[in-house]
């Protein structure tokens, strides 16, 4: 188990280094940051001086080494655009994205799994058919369209929910939360549904197809032949076996939720990291962009690590293989 964890951690480190390299190389090509930072009447000497001060004249390897060293200490430099440390920008924006992503993920899982189980068990009921039709909508409509539709119905026509922003937030230490005020919660509903709908339908369909498969297996037939109750068979024996692939997908999708938050945050003007990233791109604000990329990659890697460990916890067979390898 320990060896398994260590091996996964090493793999994670390699992935992070690769992403860091990509982030570093990629953003050297998005444009000259100096042009964005200074006015038109800045002299060439002044530009050169700024370039020197930012270390942009150093050899590439030195720059990359500095980038890694600083990133490892959670220092992504100063935003070219707003002239403040990137880490403090992220610290301001992260709670908004985190709360949005978490709510969307909970929405997807807490609704998706029961719907999947239900449609798997009661294959032919009209409710199952309704769920599946709705999920088809969720899976085929693009996120921004869903967002705009929701805004049109609930904000413009019915006027019951806000169409943008986080509402009132409460500050707890360095964390701002919208979960404690009525307006914050109301503001969260539409973006969370927009962000989570696709994932929810994905989870529903995945759980359903897994349930259908597992319910056909011999051990389920045997469990019924042993006279176990429907509940024990469906939820004790079948559901647990469907969860292994479901956890993988949910893990990956959690990363996707954070990444896709860019679109949702843009539609709802949600003051999170996605919106920050879009603004950074528009201004060639390299430190912010690379920090965002690294952070998202880190979240992906972290989630995958957790998923791997969850496997071991759920499926005893992986435990053996993990020990042997």
């Amino acid at each position: 188990m320990l060896a398994f964890t260590i091996r996964r951690l090493l793999e994670a480190a390699v992935v992070m280094l690769t992403v860091a390299l990509l982030a570093f190389v990629l953003f050297r090509f998005v444009g000259d940051p100096i042009n964005q930072m200074v006015g038109q009447d800045t002299s060439i000497a002044e530009r050169e001086e700024l370039r020197q001060r930012l270390g942009l004249n150093d050899p590439v390897l030195v720059q990359f080494g500095r980038f890694i060293w600083n990133a490892a200490r959670y220092d992504f430099g100063i935003s070219y655009q707003v002239k403040r440390p990137v880490t403090s920008l992220i610290a301001e924006r992260f709670p908004a994205t985190f709360e949005l992503a978490l709510t969307a993920a909970l929405f997807a899982v807490l609704l998706g799994i029961p719907m999947g189980v239900y449609t798997g068990i009661h294959r032919d009921s009209w409710l199952s058919k309704l769920f599946l039709s709705v999920s088809l909508v969720g899976i085929s409509l693009p996120t921004f369209l869903i967002g705009i539709l929701l805004i049109y119905v609930f904000a413009v026509q019915l006027g019951v929910l806000p169409s943008f922003g986080r509402g009132e937030v409460v500050r707890i230490g360095g964390w701002t939360t919208g979960l404690l005020t009525a307006s914050g919660l109301k503001a969260l509903i539409l973006p969370a549904i927009t962000l989570g709908l696709f994932q929810m339908t994905l989870v529903t369909r995945l759980v359903r197809s897994q349930m259908l498969e597992v319910l056909r297996t011999d051990y389920i037939k045997f469990a019924r032949a042993r006279g176990l109750s429907d509940r024990a068979v469906n939820f004790g024996h079948a559901l647990k076996n469907t969860l292994i692939p479901v956890i993988t997908i949910i893990g990956l999708q959690l990363g996707a939720i954070i990444a896709f938050a860019i679109i949702t945050e843009t539609v709802f003007q949600w003051p999170g990291m996605g919106l920050m990233f879009i603004q950074a791109v528009q201004n060639a604000d390299i430190p912010v962009m690379s920090a965002y990329l690294l952070l998202v990659a880190f979240l992906f890697v972290l989630i995958n690590l957790i998923v791997d460990l969850l496997y071991v916890w759920i499926d005893p067979r992986v435990r053996i293989y993990g020990r042997e390898a």
């Binding site: 011999d218 051990y219 045997f222 109750s229 005893p316």
Partner: peptide, 25 residues
């Protein structure tokens, strides 16, 4: 019928490899 299964009629299937739920002791 449920209480009769397992209590009064026991059943054994062909493939012991797939008759047991792999996730439970």
């Amino acid at each position: 019928m449920r209480p009769i299964r397992g209590k009064r009629i026991g059943m054994v299937f062909q493939d012991p490899l797939t008759s047991l739920n792999p996730l439970y002791r």
